[in-house]
Amino acid sequence: MSAQDEQRELRIVGFLCNWCSYGGADTAGVARFIQPTDLRIIRVPCSGRIDPLFIVRALLNGADGVLVSGCHPRDCHYAEGNFYARRRLEMLKRFLPITGIDERRFEYTWVSASEGQRWQHVVTEFTRRIHELGPAPFFNPVSEEEWAKLALDGAARGASCACHG
């Protein structure tokens, strides 16, 4: 990795629950725990609000990594939202390789509102992992002209869209 690459930010999207992890990130900020700057945080009320498809959307759109964090199991502000999240996200983690996405680009964890130091650690480690993986591969190397031509050819052969068979 050249010095220049190290400087270059990658695109990491975070989904954080309002009550624990967003608070934990705030706590880290208040304590001035320095972190890498790649991460952008989207606030949601509960990790149970996170549709796995949000994560897939981010990755398909070219995000280099997605990090989800909620309240520790049994500490959910809404009693059981993070149990739903845990099951959904674990499924997603196993499913991602099937879609051709490196599952290491996605991680979920639990950070409470008082764990500023833990948040710093989580962000630093995940960002380092994503930098080791490098930028996400571009999903469609085909240029738009080529794509249009493919579609036309397909149409001429009477086949439907390549994606939907």
Binding site: R11, V13, R40, I42, V44, D51, F54, R57, A58, N61, G62, A63, F138, F139, N140, E144, W147
Partner: peptide
Amino acid sequence: ILAEVNALCPPKM
């Protein structure tokens, strides 16, 4: 929420 995702990662195509 998807609008926020798209703001951060603009769809490539």
